[in-house]
Write a protein that binds this DNA or RNA. Structure first.
Lengths: 347, 347
DNA sequence: TGCAAAAATGCAAACGTTTTAAACTTCGGT
DNA sequence: ACCGAAGTTTAAAACGTTTGCATTTTTGCA
């Protein structure tokens, strides 16, 4: 056992050529005779030669890796986001011969320190940054370093340019409002979170903008806020909205997990959906299709987005474009059975 | 912008020491004077020195990475398996200072060829192999190479030794049978897949063994088989079992996705669960909690398993133990509302 | 056949570390 | 003041590539 790995020197010796020539031949340089190139390629294939990554990286300065620092997560991760995201990244990268490095933040260490380590150890040629917070120190660091990156999500104040791809939550929430308004709804509820994430503002602002655009003074919007990871507090917040004296006829949740809580609590309170209450979410997680009566939501096609992020990042790495690359992806409505016409009888 | 990354040579120059001394000081060698060690550590911290991974890997032969070849997957991945798995691996690795490399198989390439590339390019010190098939060429390759690995799952014929961690599906399916038998069920159904994966046999055999152990000749087991990724064929297979003249009172599905299909089709056929039909799954995916009436299933705690796999692999890499490391994890029953006593009236 | 130009190949340095073996310092004991 | 030993530090090689530049070989033409 323990077969040795063949090296360029050995391959060269077996061909009676210099290391230089073999290296160039494998790289397909024109200056090497075609005949030689073929001979080398043949021998390399047969010997199962694979160039050593470390050596190549050391001399070329390119590792062929893209880094992703895993967002620190609570004990329960129910959705498929991360799986879809890394799958999409992988698919996008592999077509260019790149691979993915996943770095995890240890308990004591901040996400930023892990990012620094990834960048400065030369492990990666670029990084992907997810879950952008309102003031994100990671982006500030990467900009200062001049290190290639693409953000999945945006900052609010774009006074500094960077590459990003984001789902157009503002548009989706506007679309949700318009659809519900056409269905006769006038009293709306928004269930949101208190975390300092930009997507929260973008979606809420999109909803508010759509309301303003409609210009109907009879439209009302109630907002409740819950902490991100406290399920008990979420339930209480939802019930504050549901059990009040004058509850909305349509509730929009910042994301599906919240919407599912709304549906559970609404069912517990005996409201029939969508007859008495419409609910709309965002993300289209798997459970949304199964939770009765089937949650109407928006699909952001994470996997496809991740693939595009990979493409963008590889472009940034290879070409260092002057203008930043940006993409705004419009999510698609997944109409299920949790929304419908506003109830006729209004007290 | 574009701050340069500091190198060992520069750090040594700034301290007026040789590269050797600084390297050793940072590594904490006793032979370097304590005073010097502290001085170096201080300067390194202040300068933000991070050793270059490629250089270190090249000379030491250790990359500090563990590889995972992403299983090729269809367009729709609904579960959170991959996300939990990489999160768990990351958590397990980071405590030992290691990180994860995710390699994706490009469209034309086999998973094996990607694995070969990861191994022979020296990118990783060890690999994790998931989704073990009946005759798995990856395991054969890794054994031949003598390369450190841990398999998530087992081969059927253990005539060759290797390191693995697996969930005890056989035990779970036996437990499911016993529970259902005690509830009065005698006519069982098993919905399985036609793919050549070992977990399929292990679970089915566990069920069969429990039946045999009980020794009750009145127990009956019907089995239907569907291809893994064809939802339409799945539905047909499930209906073959459900709509037959004499359907089982309890159906066990190989995994939750199949169980959810059973529940959907049963609901469509008008059967009430668990009154007329009991259903049990395996995996405890998120949707199982939401699909009415709530699927009873087994939780394999993927994240925790992945963390242990990481630990095992790092042990294998560091210590090359003579005996293979193996762990069999017993899944825990998650009792929801899809199982209950057998219906009284039997035609 | 000779010679320049073109084509093909090779030498050697470089990338940033770790490590072996050697050299230099310091110091107590005589 | 000298010696050896212990305590420190360093020079240089090595890891496996890529690449600028030099060298060798081939080719075409006189």
């Amino acid at each position: 056992m323990t077969t040795r790995v063949i090296t360029l020197k050995e391959l060269a010796a077996s061909l009676d050529l210099s290391i230089t020539t073999v290296s160039r031949a494998l790289a397909g340089h024109e200056q090497i005779a075609l005949k030689t190139r073929e001979r080398v390629a043949q021998a390399a294939r047969q010997a199962g030669y694979v160039p050593n990554t470390a050596a190549r990286t050391l001399v070329s300065g390119r590792s062929g890796f893209v880094g992703l620092v895993l967002p620190i997560r609570g004990p329960n991760l129910v959705d498929s986001f991360l799986g879809e995201f890394v799958t999409g990244l992988g698919e996008g990268l592999v077509s260019h011969g790149a691979d993915l490095i996943l770095a995890t933040a240890a308990l004591g260490h901040s996400e930023l320190s892990v990012l620094r380590h990834v960048v400065e150890s030369g492990r990666a040629d670029g990084v992907v940054v997810t879950r952008i917070a309102e003031t994100d120190e990671r982006l500030a660091y990467l900009r200062e370093r001049g290190f290639p990156f693409v953000a999945h999500g945006r900052l609010l104040d774009s006074d500094f340019d960077y590459n990003w791809l984001d789902t157009d939550g503002a548009h989706a929430f506007g679309e949700a409002f318009d659809m519900l308004y056409e269905l006769g709804h006038r009293h709306f509820g928004l269930v949101t979170i208190s975390e300092a994430m930009t997507f929260r503002h973008l979606r809420q602002d999109g909803l508010a903008a759509a309301i303003a655009r409609r210009g109907d003074p009879s439209v009302r919007l109630d907002v409740v806020t819950a902490p991100r990871f406290d399920q008990q507090a979420r339930i209480e917040a939802v019930n504050r909205m549901l059990r009040g004296p004058d509850r909305p006829t349509a509730i929009v949740a910042l994301f599906d997990e919240l919407a599912l809580t709304v549906m559970e609590e609404a069912a517990r309170a005996g409201f029939s959906m969508p007859r008495e209450l419409s609910v709309i979410g965002f993300d289209n997680i798997a459970a949304s299709a199964y939770a009765p009566p089937g949650l109407t939501t928006f699909d952001a096609s994470i996997r496809q987005c991740a693939r595009e992020i990979a493409d963008m990042l590889l472009t940034v790495i290879a070409e260092k474009p002057g203008k930043p690359l940006t993409r705004l992806i419009r999510p698609t409505l997944v109409a299920r059975a949790s929304h419908g016409p506003a109830p006729q009888t209004r007290s």
